[in-house]
Design a protein around this nucleic acid. Structure first.
Lengths: 221, 221
DNA sequence: AAGAACCTGTCACAGACCTGTCACGCGATG
DNA sequence: CATCGCGTGACAGGTCTGTGACAGGTTCTT
């Protein structure tokens, strides 16, 4: 597969490039929007990884331009945690998925695979587990067919769990992923959010199981 | 497994080495970045444990160089809690995980296992011995097809035994692995946990055999 | 600008759940 | 027979979680 990575932080870019290459992909790297546009006009990419904050402008403008040209190359947006609330506008512009920094490489890999798979089937970005559907890009959740509105943090927590159902998430890991490093939050916050999420999931076959001393796990009954 | 430990504090390094060796791994130890680079060019490591603060530079430069050489040996970064903001850049540079100091050996062990497992591929996550399956990531155990819920310590004990069936575990070794240094626990605790585990395994072909005066062993009948 | 409506993270507290110890019985050992 | 190591049931103390209430912040309305 041939990817285009648009990212201005050279270290991060290098690391991502290397890892994706090790996965057997070909990567071109653009550090600015104008480079990205140039690349995307010439190269025939299977997937574009797009950072939002770029020196010569907002990644969104690239995305918009990209879509205006009626290209259907899928785009995964790389965003810092604090920019996550921009979710909606990204969806409007046609991003296929997004990954928040910092990310495990494994996570990125998984997203890439998922997006490519979806593109092959041309389906929407809606994940489903038991009787719960989750559209991470739009932030839409339905439980037993009924739309449920979650708040920002609840969404992000659900997203984490949803991406690895059946896996144990230690509380500390959830803290790390849900909050940025400079906000130090008590672990109790996670308990509270788990409780809130559970309330929203009531009536569904999805359960958040507590493993004392180990963490939480999303199970579909 | 063969590990490279890059750590300049000799006491900490020695402690980590000893414990990892007890776990059956081979460890090389580098105290500086230049040593680390030399080692990593020759040795074929399964995992690298990397301290960030080193006398001749920043662990980051090692990490960067490591990735530039397109090696995919997984790297776990050891950071002090105060260096929290560094974790970000570490993940950005391609580290696979991080552990904050001071850490329990158990925690380090767990991270190592997780990273190695990931690298090995997702297929192996469910281990099976006789009629017992064990999924360490999910914390799931089934005996004769039936799910059994184990608690924290029981799980960890089972994991130890499961990873080396047929091997004799002296009681003291189990104490060392299951508890951290500062909790001093009577050996009887192990007896109790063995008993509890046995109860959970009832009906299965897996047996925990007592070798009087020597230790315990997991046997599949 | 003032006010309303939300979101968020913390607190305090109760209760559930774990844990390691003890005491005692048993069989093995020598 | 005297010891010693081990297995167990019961227990008390702690630890971990779940929750309702709340105060400080934000965002949206008016």
């Amino acid at each position: 597969m041939k990817f285009l990575l648009v990212e201005d932080n050279p270290d991060l870019a290098a690391a991502v490039c290397v890892r994706l290459q090790l996965d057997g992909h070909t990567i071109d790297h653009a550090g600015t929007i104008s480079d990205a546009i140039a690349f995307s006009e010439i190269g025939d990419y299977d997937l574009i990884l797009l950072d939002i904050m770029l020196p010569d402008g907002d990644g969104r403008s690239f995305l918009k331009q990209h879509r205006d040209q009626k290209r259907d190359t899928p785009v995964i947006v790389l965003t810092a945690r604090s920019q996550v609330s921009d979710r909606i506008s990204m969806l409007d512009l046609g991003a296929d998925d997004y990954v928040t920094k910092p990310f495990d490489h494994e996570e990125l890999q998984a997203r890439c695979r998922a997006v490519l798979r979806r593109k092959a089937g041309a389906a929407q970005t809606v994940l489903q587990l038991a009787d719960v559907t989750f559209n991470p890009v739009a932030g839409h959740v339905t439980v037993c067919g009924k739309a449920v509105s979650l708040r920002n943090r609840e969404l992000r927590l659900l997203e984490l769990l949803f991406n690895a159902p059946g896996q144990i998430f230690p509380k500390q890991k959830l803290v790390d992923r849900l909050f940025s490093y400079d906000e130090d939050v008590s672990a109790n916050a996670i308990e509270v959010y788990i409780a809130r999420l559970r309330k929203h999931l009531e009536g569904s076959a999805l359960k958040i199981t507590t493993l004392r001393g180990l963490g939480y796990r999303l199970d579909h009954g």
